[in-house]
């Protein structure tokens, strides 16, 4: 699975980072950086965190492709 960010929509609420700190973080300017875009289906824990990050984004700026 792949995490896709709609950068125009992202406002830096940062709730995704709390849900999946190993996959993404806000940089010093508050811009979201995807540290891992590809998440292996063999890593169900990481996949669950990726789905959690998508779920929690209040402006729906993240999706799974």
């Amino acid at each position: 699975m792949r995490i896709v960010l709609d950068r125009e929509r992202c406002e830096g609420h940062g709730l995704c980072e709390e849900a999946a700190p190993d996959l993404m973080h806000l940089d010093d300017d508050g811009e979201l950086v995807l540290d891992r875009e590809e998440v292996s289906d063999d890593d169900p824990a990481a996949a669950a965190r990726a789905n959690g990050a998508v779920r929690v984004c209040p402006v729906a700026a993240l999706r799974i492709a």
Binding site: R9, E11, H13, L15, A19, R55, V56, P58, V59, A60
Partner: peptide, 18 residues
């Protein structure tokens, strides 16, 4: 409940929620 609806959701999600 991180996915509650009180702030709305999506493109019109509450702009002042921060």
């Amino acid at each position: 409940p991180v996915d509650h609806l009180a702030f709305g959701y999506g493109p019109h999600g509450c702009a002042g929620q921060g």
